[in-house]
């Protein structure tokens, strides 16, 4: 049996009232896959991403990532798990406006206690790799949407996570910037980065996902493998 990076068993999530956001979902993701999670609004896509990231806990079932039972982690262990294994990219970037691009990118490494020199070198390397090194000392507010999302990706990759989670990474971008991010994620996956992305953007899913699943009302209704993970 092939190695599994994410293993979700019978995971469900209920909020205060109404139908469950996730309903007994089973899912496995192997290293190197680029999984696109599709579905209409309210289908449970972001909830799934939050459970994998340890941002939220399932009401039932289990979520295991890299052998770690994420659903059983306390707040401190959950933070450590995110620092060491997860990189997150958000629709609205969630960059801190009062920190420069470099300082935003450095943040996960600094929280993890990485040495100053090593962290700076890694940040420079990422900024150069993502083509935004000329903005290193700028503040996020002065960058275009695409550039900001690249900064967010750089920040997500800072601690070399085994898993990159992206929540509507092109949702707030214009067409050109969206293309830019699509290409970036494709390239990252080509370099072996496992990615789980939640999106409404079919073009994004077509461009970079090796596998696509579709959720409706918290249930998995389609699971389509487009190609063998690279």
């Amino acid at each position: 049996m092939a190695e599994v990076l994410i293993e979700i068993r019978e995971a469900s999530k209920k909020y205060d009232s109404g139908p469950p956001a996730l309903d007994a979902l089973d899912l496995t993701v192997r290293p190197g896959e680029a999984l696109a999670v599709l579905g209409p609004s309210g289908s449970g896509k972001s909830t799934l991403l939050n459970l994998i990231a340890g941002l939220d806990r399932p009401s039932g079932g289990s979520v295991t990532v890299g052998g770690v039972r994420v659903d059983r982690l306390g707040e401190a262990a959950s933070a450590k798990y995110r620092r060491e294994r997860i990189g997150m990219v958000f629709q609205f970037f969630n960059l801190l406006d009062d920190l420069t691009v470099t300082d935003n990118v450095l943040l996960p490494a600094q929280l993890a206690g990485m040495g100053r020199t090593e962290a700076r070198a890694r940040a420079q390397e990422l900024l150069a790799y993502l083509g935004i090194d000329r903005h290193a000392r700028a503040y996020p507010g002065r960058l275009s949407g695409g550039e900001r999302q690249r900064v967010a990706v750089a920040r997500a990759l800072m601690n070399r996570p085994s898993l990159l989670l992206a929540d509507e990474p092109t949702g707030a971008l214009d067409t050109a910037s969206g293309d830019d991010v699509r290409q970036l994620l494709t390239d990252l996956n080509a370099d072996g980065q496992t990615i789980v992305l939640v999106t409404h953007d079919l073009a994004l899913s077509e461009a970079c996902a090796t596998r696509t699943i579709e959720l409706v009302d918290g249930r998995l209704v389609r699971d389509h493998v487009r190609a063998v993970a690279r």
Partner: peptide, 16 residues
Amino acid sequence: IHDLGVFKALGMSPRQ
């Protein structure tokens, strides 16, 4: 609170 959420999503521990 939103900024705190970002920090925590990036791995800021409760003690931090």
